[in-house]
Structure formats: C-alpha cells, structure tokens
Nucleic acid binder design. Sequence first.
RNA 1: GCGGGGGUUGCCGAGCGGUCAAAGGCGCGGGAUUUAGGGUCCCGUCCCGUAGGGGUUCGAGGGUUCGAAUCCCUCCCCCCGCACCA
Length: 933
Amino acid sequence: MADFREIEKKWQKVWQESRIFEADPDNRQKFFITIPYPYLNGNLHAGHTRTLTIGDAFARYMRMKGYNVLFPLGFHVTGTPIIGLAELIAKRDEKTIEVYTKYHDVPLEDLLELTTPEKIVEYFSREALQALKNIGYSIDWRRVFTTTDEEYQRFIEWQYWKLKEMGLIVKGTHPVRYCPHDQNPVEDHDLLMGEGATIVEFTVIKFKLEDEDLVFPCATLRPETIFGVTNIWVKPTKYVIAEVDGEKWFVSREAYEKLTYTEKSVKQIREVDAREYIGKYVTVPLVNRKVPILPADFVDTDNATGVVMSVPAHAPYDYAAIEDLKRDEKRLQEFGIDRSVVENLKPIVLIGTSELKGVPAEEIARELGVRSQKDVELLEKATKTLYKKEYHTGVMLENTMNYARMKVSEAKEKIHEDLIKAGLADVFYEFSEKPVVCRCGTKCVVKVVRDQWFLNYSNREWKNKVLNHLENMRIIPNYYKEEFRNKIEWLKDKACARRKGLGTRIPWDKEWLIESLSDSTIYMAYYILAKYINEGVLKAENMTNEFLDYVLLGKGNAESAANSAGLEKDVVERIRADFEYWYPVDLRSSGKDLVANHLLFYLFHHVAIFPPEKWPRAIAVNGYVSLEGKKMSKSKGPLLTMKRAVQQYGADVTRLYILHAAEYDSDADWKSREVEGLANHLRRFYSLVKDHYLKQQQRMTMLDRWLVSRMQRAIREVRDAMDKLQTRRAVNAAFFEVMNDVRWYLRRGGENLVIILDDWLKLLSPFAPHICEDLWHLKHDSFVSLESYPEFDESKINEEAEMAEEYLKRLIEDIMEVKKFVEGAKEVYIHPADEWKIEAAKVVIDSKDVGEAIKKLMQDEEMRKIGKEVTNFVKRVFKDRKKLVILNEKELIEKNSDFIESETGLKLSLDSSKVPDEKKRVAIPGKPAIYVL
RNA sequence: GCGGGGGUUGCCGAGCGGUCAAAGGCGCGGGAUUUAGGGUCCCGUCCCGUAGGGGUUCGAGGGUUCGAAUCCCUCCCCCCGCACCA
C-alpha cells in the first residue's frame, strides 16, 4: 500500500529544489492571490487549513491555466494576544498549559520556555512554516515575513504618514466598556458577564426646576416624544445633586458614579431624597411647558440618569404609572399631590400611524391586558411593539412644531441633534444589558476615551469611494456583496491607537501603538518588497518615504528615490517594475470572520492610498471548520492542528477532504471517520492509476469513447466550478464522479483506462497535488503542477455512446426489477419497440401537442391501419416524450448480451415470439418489453 | 432590534419551474470475493406492490401555474455579524 507521507515529502522536496512556485514577472498574464496572514498565538489549525487549501487549490488551478501566479504568505504577530499568552505561560497558568500541550501539540518542555512574546513568535513561526511546507502549498517562500520586522514597521509608518496627510486620521473621543479596577478597556473575552451588552446612547434632556437652578436630566431613547411630556418621573429614594460641567444636576447615585467616567467634569454637591422634589414643577425644554415631578416605582436608578420623562400617549410604562397613581389615593396624600394634578395629565398624541388610533399607549396596554406598572413583561412587550410601529411607519403630527410631518425615524435623529446643539440636551452612554462584569469581578462602566487617534471611516467621501469600487469587484459568493455594502455603511470611525501590544508606533505620536487590524490593510504590497528584503538587498534604512512613494505609488522618480534610499537606481527600478507587474491583488480569499473588519479595512485603505488600477479585484469568503460537530477554539480547545492532520492522514487526504467538506461560506465539519473513508478512496485511486497508467493504449471502442466523453463533461464541470471557486463541486466532479464512471467502465470490461489518465491526473492535481505528481512521473518528466489544465473539447462528447450506456444501465435495472417478482428466474426475453413505434416516436418528439402528432401520423396509410394503437401510444408517450430514445436497440443488446447476462444472471434472448403480446404492447423506444421466466 | 445566510429524505449536503423519490458522501442492510468482522466490488436503504408500477414527501399554511423542493405571500424556527478583538 502506498505511503502517502513518503510520496508527499518526496515531491515537496523536489518542488522546492526546482523552485517551481517562485514567481517573478515574465510575459505571461499574472495572477496575484493572497490569504490573510495567520496570527501566531498558537499553531495553525483546521480553520487555517481550509482557507489556505482553497487558496492553494485556486493558485494551482490558475497556474495550470497558464497564469503567472504569485501566492505568498507572511505571519501576523502584532497586537495583544501574544503578550497575553506569554504572561500566562510565564505564570504557569494551568488551563493554558493544558490547552497548548493537548491541542496545540506543543511539547511541555518547549512550552514552558515560551515566556516572552519574542520566543512565542519565534517558536510558532517556525512551527507554522513547517506545517505549511508539510501540506505542500505552492507558496513563494522567498517573500515570508513577520509583522514585527523592522522593515515591515517602516512600511506601516509610511502608510500612516500617507493617511495622515490625507486627513484620514483624526483625533476623537469615544465610549468603551471599561473596568474601573483594572483601569483598562475590556474586550468580550475579558468579561465574566454581559458579553452581549452593547453601548446605547441615551439622549438626556435637561428639564429645569421651577424657581431653582437645578437640572432634571431625563434620559430617553425617544427624544422625539418630547412634545408629549406630561410630567417627569423619579423614584422616591436617595439621589445626588452634582455639578456637571458647571450645571447642577439631579441624578441617581449610580448615575453619578457613571458620570465620573465620562469626559465631563463632575463633582458631588450633596445627597438628597427625591421626595423633596416630588410635586414641584419643571419646564419641558423646547416646548416650554411646566410639568410636575411625580413618583414612580418602575424607574430604575441604575439605568442612565435615573430620571425619566413621561409620555403617556406613546410610552406604555408612563401610561400605566399615571393610571396607578390616579388610583393610589394614599400615595397622592403621602407626597402631598393634589388629585387634580394627576387627573389633568392628559396624554398628548404626537405621532400618527395608519394602524393605531386614539392614544396608542393606552390602546396597546388595553389590548395586552396591562393592569399596572408592575406588569413588567407585558409592558416590555407593549413598549417594543409600539416603538417598532411608530419608528418605522410613524409620522410626526402637527403639534410637533417644525418637525411636523417628518418621519419618526428622521425626526428622532434631528431632534436629538437640535437639542444638543441648543444646549438643551446631552448624551449618556449605558449598557444595553446589565450587569457587565469584568473577569476581575468588578462591575464595568462606559468610559469615554478622549484624544485617541481614529481612522476616519465615517468619512462620506471615503465610504463612497469604497462603495463605488465594490460594484466593480467580484465577490464570492456573490450575496456577500450586499453584506459588504451594508457593512461599509455601518462602519464608524475606528480607534487605531493602543497603549499596549506588539506593533508599530504611530510615527508622529510615539506614545501610541498602531492597533493590529489597522496595520494589516495594504500589506499585500509588502510581499513585493519582502523578496528584496529577504535577499538582503533592501533594509529598513533604505525604505525612506520617498523611496516607498516611488516604488509603490510611482511618485517622484527613480533617481531621487534611489538617492534617498541609498540604493542603486536599477534596483529601485526593478522593485518598482515588480510592483507594477504584480499589483493589484487579483483575489483575496479569506475566512468569513474577517468580513466585518479586516476585509473592510483592506478595501478602505487600498482605495485611499493607491490609484484605482491598483485596487483589489476580487474577494472570496469561506466558512469555519468544526471538529466532530464541536466548535474549535484556540484558547479552550478542541483544536486540530494542520500539522497533526497531515501527520495522521497525509497532505492530499487532508486537502481533498477539507475542500470537499463544504462549499463557500457554509461551515465544514471535520469527521475523522469520513476522513478515513476518503483516505481509502484515494488509495484506491492511486493503485488504480498505477495499474493502468503504463498500459499500451488499444484501439478505441464505443465504450472507450463513452469514457472519453464522460471525462470531457467532468472537465467542463470542474472548470466551471473552479472559476466560481466552488471547490466542493469541483472535487466532487473531478474525483468522485469520475471515479464512478471509471468503476462502471471497468465493470463493463473496459481495458483502455489509460486514455483518460493524463487528463484525470491534471484535473485532480490542484486538489491532490502530491499523488498526482507522483503518478504523473511514472510516465512523464515534466511537473503535472505546471502542465496546462485540460480544456473542454466539445468534439469528444459522444452523445450516442452516452445514450447507449444509459440505455444499458436502465435495461439492466428494469430486468432486475422484474426479476424480483419471478421466483427461480432463469431467462429473459427482450422485445424492443416495433418499427412503427419508432417512426411514431420521431413524430411525437417534434410535435407541440398530442393532436398535432396524431394528425401527422394519420397521414400515413400504414399507421392508419393500426390507428387505435397509434393513438394510444401517442397519448401514453407524449408527456415524457423527452425521455424517448431512438437507437438501434437490437444491435446494442446483441453486442452486450454477455454483459447483460452476467449482470442479471439470466439467459438472454431476443426471440420475440416468446414474449406475450400484452408485454410487447408496453414497449416504447428506449424501453423494450421484458419477459422473465 | 438591524443586517446577511439558511430550514431537503437516518446524518452531511446538492438541486432552485418540468429531465425529482430528488446527485454525491456518510451511516445502515444484503450479496460477491484468492472473504482475518477492518479491504475491494455489486445491490438495496420514504411507504405499498407476485412484472419494470403506484402512493406520500423537500420547516408550516396559503397562492401563481397544465406542472413547484424550486416562483409569490404570511408565519415559525436556526446560524452569523453588530466593533476596537484577532
């Protein structure tokens, strides 16, 4: 039995020595394909294997189609996880040690050494390189690099200078989840609770107290309802009066605490009991109406400011609370509120929708059966439903001043902005879910970080440029184009500076490091430079801005670029020529996890920095890989490393399996049992080819022509699938379906298998390159990896042969079907359809309807004689007329009688006289009468 | 909530107006074999059927059509993203 690992190693070595995947400009058309460089806080795993194998299969395919293919790869190490990992290992964190020894397959003694980021980078890049070589990717390894390389950092600095010049990097302030204890922003995986929480922006409308300089900041998500405010709510409990940016605010204690993390200057003045203010009046800004402060229990002091405005017409909670209060004589007395005050709180309807008449909140509360403000579940539902309806279909009514007739969705934004501009409102950030708790056990808050560097992705012009270019791009699968459109719209400014991590410092503000997704946007251009860097021709000190401007953007001239760089002019020109030749990237193939981040930034930065002809041409997206139905996790396991998969199953098995496991962005599941099965298939393939490949080709039979014809169909299918990057379909057609045809062929006694083997090996070579290379060399001296991919040749399609084989398959099936019903069956008599039926069938095939067919047939005297039978035949056959097959059945059966006999185990005879008439009658062309005895 | 994808026969998964009881793989059952229970090759695998046939299926319910897994509408359910993290 063939040892695949031996074969694979052999050819990997030969490929490397022959440098067949090292790509340099020549006169062929180029194809530049890239895969996002892997992040090295662990070993490469099945997820990387999938993305990279798709890329490699496509690279190989394109190479065989005659393109000069550049397929490079580097390693990503900037950011925080590697530092975090080093700390964990240094700390001897048990869980980490377990995961890294058990799943990442790092030997314990090696692992314990990895206590600094540098050692980790060194170790895992070495491991990755080995794994990638073991699986035999056709990567041009002369261009490998790591993102902490000095030269790479120089390249990043250059990029950031460019963006800065263009005004695309701005200073800004933004809210983050923040742990007061750690004094650090927290990421999802740093959280104990509240991973799903998002930061919600409340509008805080400032209601001024009558006769006193005190602001009641009412937090709301529906600022447009300000026109319907009848009162405000506080909870009868302790609050705080604080100085906030020079104003005196009345807020809950929790709110005060939160305010201290914002960019506002805050100072507590004193604690107060809300009761002191209940019954007093405040002024509704903008509308200048005086409304009372009233008590309500539903108010959550831990949500925003702890003060809310009441809009009974549109907020079910407010409506219910007012109704409660009306009924609660005791409470009114307790707070000294005159009954009439509450009775006078009439809902003010300010939004119109087609569906909701009257007072919407009242209607909906009644519909759902809300009894009091304590019916929290019902009220939540009512609030949601109402909000949804009004937001999407509502229109502002006449009582909303100059917002009248605006759509609610628009008015909301507008009012929010206008109020803030006028100093009548502010913003308050709050979590959408609570609590949010840090791993250290501390409750997190929203902190507003100021003066950070941002990539100005919200910039309309920048967005439009990306959006426009997207329309010219090929996105695979194509429905992702819509996804990209939406994501581009949704993208906001992104903080690109960090305080900790590995990476490049912002060149004009060295306090900050460039965030690790922000330094991975246009690095594909760096592959051009990397070759020269690795050759020692180019060093960091040569890479001046002027030099990079010239080689990457064509700015300035070679002469002065060379001077600035301290390089020979011809070197500079060569690098420039390389870049001109290879750029842009023709295909970037990536996992779908990068859609909403990296791939977006990739587009934004290319569009900003390079001229249009250098913008990306195509993006392909693929799904994840799970393990026996379980999600893989780098940090928790389970995980299957690339290296282990190759060790266990072999490179080609791994590749073929992963390519066939799923299509496009659907997720693949790695089932070791199926992988074993595939390994068997491949071994069978190997020995099959080996047994036949060197045989002398013999005279072509009809069956051989059938095989060739089928091979042509496979070629067409595979090419079509690969052109769309459908690797699953391609492997299915190239491997499994051809295999099935070959099986049939051999069963039929075919002896000329060799006629398709060259094509088959070429066809399969992008998917199982080692085995194909090995087999190919049984007969050839060239590399199958560099052969041209089989072309579909219409002239080799043989419809007749295909029909004949189909006919035989069907016939044998039918005989077996009938045989089931005959005990001790020994013989089969076959009577193909009579001559007149064939004539009639020909007419039927060309007729539009039954009537026309019969009319035509009845013109023939012979047909008329058996008119009734003809009519019945036509009626019976018409519906499936496309299935009618006209061929010389008798001859075909005679020629293949041995085969039919051996397949069915019956003695075959064409002696029609033995077939009863009622059987003969059912025969139609392509489906003879069968009589089994 | 918003956006994107999806629900197909035991499982994975193709099909996306007729060629569909629906490819292929896996699993399962049976047979063959120079049969070691693991390899290979056949056959079967929704239900019924002593003649190649019939019946019922493709999340649910309506509709369009001569004809729907495939098109339209409504509903239910599942997955992914929503960020400063690679």
